[in-house]
Amino acid sequence: MKVKKWDVIIISLFVIASFIPALIFTLQARANSGGYYVEIKVQGELYETRQLTGHTGREEIRIETDLGVNIVEIIEEKVGMYEADCPDKVCYSPEYISRAGETIVCLPNRIVIEVKGEKPDADDEDIITGWASDHHE
């Protein structure tokens, strides 16, 4: 069986066309995304929310509780645990995170740092706690 020029062209077009849906979904996801933001929870309660996408410079967030002291650092579009007085220091690994779904946890001080997708509106209420998303402890 001999492969002809038009056979190769038609197969190539089908292969290229098969990637079009993936391209469309990727472009839609980027267009709908408000960027990444970080949620910091202390003892299960929302403590702070900060935008990561477009963030420039360096910012420190100091968290003091009866369990200990932690300093969360935002550098450019990444967030990490800058300082923690917990004994195990597991919260230093990974050093800095920047993608949705990544988390840093300090179990002894009960602090969770999580990067999330599109930033919620300030007046949106959390269904479970009933707090507005700009609530600070």
Rank of each mutant, 00 (worst) to 15 (best):
M81F: 11
A22T: 11
K78T: 14
G130Q: 07
R110A: 13
E60C: 00
V38Y: 03
I113S: 04
K2T: 13
N32Y: 15
V8E: 11
G35E: 04
E64T: 14
T65M: 08
R30D: 14
Q51L: 14
E102M: 11
I75W: 12
I97T: 03
V105S: 02
S12R: 05
D85L: 06
I74F: 10
P108Q: 02
I63D: 04
G68H: 00
I9T: 12
D66S: 12
D88R: 06
D88F: 01
I127V: 13
R62M: 12
E64M: 09
T65N: 08
L67P: 02
C106N: 02
F19Q: 09
P120C: 05
I127A: 13
V105L: 13
P87I: 06
I74G: 03
L67Y: 05
G80S: 10
V115T: 10
I74C: 10
K78L: 10
Y82S: 14
D126P: 03
H136D: 07
A31P: 01
G130T: 07
P94L: 01
D66I: 08
N32C: 07
V79M: 03
A132R: 11
V72S: 01
G35D: 04
D66Q: 09
I75M: 11
S33F: 03
D66P: 04
A31V: 07
S93C: 00
I71Y: 01
R99T: 13
Q43F: 05
K78F: 12
V112D: 01
I11A: 13
N109F: 01
H136V: 11
A29Q: 14
S33P: 03
F25A: 08
P120Y: 03
S98R: 05
R110D: 15
D85Y: 04
G117I: 09
R58L: 10
R110C: 00
I71R: 03
V38Q: 05
G68P: 02
I71N: 01
I9C: 01
H136N: 06
S18A: 15
T49Q: 12
D121R: 12
T53V: 04
G130C: 07
R58Y: 08
I71M: 05
V112T: 10
I24N: 01
T49L: 15
T129Y: 02
E76M: 11
F19P: 05
G130A: 07
S133H: 15
I128V: 15
E48F: 10
C91Q: 05
G57P: 09
E125G: 00
I10H: 00
R62T: 14
T65C: 04
V69I: 14
E64F: 04
L107S: 07
E39P: 02
F14Y: 10
R62K: 14
V115E: 09
G80I: 12
T103A: 08
F19E: 08
Y96C: 07
G80H: 09
E39T: 12
G54Q: 09
I104V: 11
V3N: 10
V105Q: 05
R58V: 15
H55S: 14
K5Q: 11
